[in-house]
Simulated scan of single mutants.
Amino acid sequence: MDIKGLRKEYSSPILSRDMLDPDPIRQFARWFADASASDMLEPNAMSLATAGVDGQPTLRTVLLKFFDHNGFVFFTNYGSRKARQIAANHRVALLFSWIRLERQVEIIGKAEKVSSVESARYFATRPRDSQIGAWISRQSTILSSRKLLMMELEKMKVRFLQGEIPLPDFWGGYRVYPTSLEFWQGQTSRLHDRFLYTRSDGDGWNLQRLAP
């Protein structure tokens, strides 16, 4: 297959500095609302890049479940590869790729565990089957067959036949505290608009245009 010719000419309106909110979290909220209002699948899907002590980066897609001025929150198994790498190196990167809207947002920051109270509050909102799934999956470990996984699922369904399902002590959330956010909007001739917010002293932000 010849992929050299796969090309799309972007045609978004010009993105200028005066169109952007001085606060990048409010600007992200605007773009996230646009993505949510579109017909794209999983607008809250984000790529999460982590690296352990060996410096080898890994990448996967997770779902954003909450964001505010304190950061961007996702949930996972604390024994997973991503969690082990975060324990060794808190610096991470997030990428929202909203290609249907010809937009991307890159977030650089540090990840820290949320409180068990926050994790429990979110866990209680998950569908029951997803709660049980969190109990049986030893994420990122080697699994000899799917049959064993499904057998464990049936055991857990019996165990939790009645009552509420408790939060596993090996499962919870991370909050990514942002140090920079880049907003990218596609333009013709690959001369894309890029604006980078970086933290200044205190709680303020600096905003600069980047070359495409």
Results as ranks from 00 to 15, higher is better:
residue 24 P to E: 09
residue 92 V to P: 01
residue 102 E to Q: 15
residue 184 W to Y: 06
residue 69 H to Y: 03
residue 113 K to S: 07
residue 133 G to V: 07
residue 29 A to P: 08
residue 191 L to G: 04
residue 82 K to Y: 01
residue 44 N to G: 08
residue 189 S to H: 12
residue 47 S to E: 09
residue 125 T to Q: 12
residue 30 R to P: 04
residue 163 G to P: 05
residue 57 P to S: 01
residue 107 I to C: 04
residue 119 S to L: 00
residue 50 T to G: 06
residue 88 A to P: 00
residue 123 F to S: 10
residue 51 A to S: 10
residue 202 G to F: 11
residue 202 G to S: 12
residue 147 K to M: 08
residue 126 R to C: 07
residue 211 A to W: 02
residue 142 I to F: 15
residue 174 Y to K: 01
residue 24 P to T: 07
residue 170 F to L: 10
residue 145 S to E: 08
residue 111 A to T: 01
residue 32 F to T: 06
residue 192 H to Q: 03
residue 150 M to L: 15
residue 28 F to V: 00
residue 150 M to R: 11
residue 197 Y to H: 05
residue 11 S to A: 15
residue 166 P to W: 03
residue 146 R to L: 10
residue 84 R to L: 04
residue 57 P to R: 06
residue 71 G to W: 05
residue 50 T to K: 03
residue 206 N to E: 12
residue 88 A to H: 07
residue 123 F to V: 09
residue 76 T to M: 02
residue 46 M to Q: 06
residue 14 I to C: 06
residue 95 L to C: 15
residue 10 Y to E: 05
residue 176 V to D: 05
residue 147 K to D: 12
residue 170 F to H: 12
residue 108 I to S: 10
residue 152 E to Y: 00
residue 156 M to T: 05
residue 53 V to M: 04
residue 67 F to L: 04
residue 126 R to E: 05
residue 18 D to L: 09
residue 31 W to M: 03
residue 3 I to Q: 11
residue 19 M to R: 10
residue 19 M to L: 15
residue 98 W to F: 07
residue 208 Q to T: 13
residue 173 G to W: 07
residue 116 S to G: 15
residue 3 I to K: 13
residue 137 S to E: 00
residue 19 M to K: 14
residue 121 R to M: 12
residue 156 M to W: 06
residue 22 P to D: 08
residue 49 A to L: 08
residue 124 A to I: 13
residue 141 T to W: 01
residue 201 D to T: 13
residue 164 E to A: 15
residue 177 Y to E: 13
residue 175 R to K: 11
residue 34 D to A: 14
residue 61 T to S: 11
residue 17 R to P: 06
residue 118 E to H: 06
residue 197 Y to T: 02
residue 58 T to G: 09
residue 207 L to H: 10
residue 111 A to H: 02
residue 156 M to D: 02
residue 141 T to A: 03
residue 182 E to G: 03
residue 116 S to N: 14
residue 128 R to N: 11
residue 121 R to V: 12
residue 130 S to N: 09
residue 71 G to A: 06
residue 152 E to W: 00
residue 143 L to V: 14
residue 210 L to H: 04
residue 143 L to I: 12
residue 70 N to C: 07
residue 65 K to T: 04
residue 59 L to T: 15
residue 87 A to E: 05
residue 43 P to M: 12
residue 134 A to W: 04
residue 85 Q to K: 00
residue 23 D to K: 03
residue 56 Q to Y: 11
residue 201 D to G: 11
residue 23 D to F: 05
residue 68 D to C: 09
residue 117 V to Y: 13
residue 124 A to Y: 09
residue 182 E to A: 09
residue 152 E to L: 13
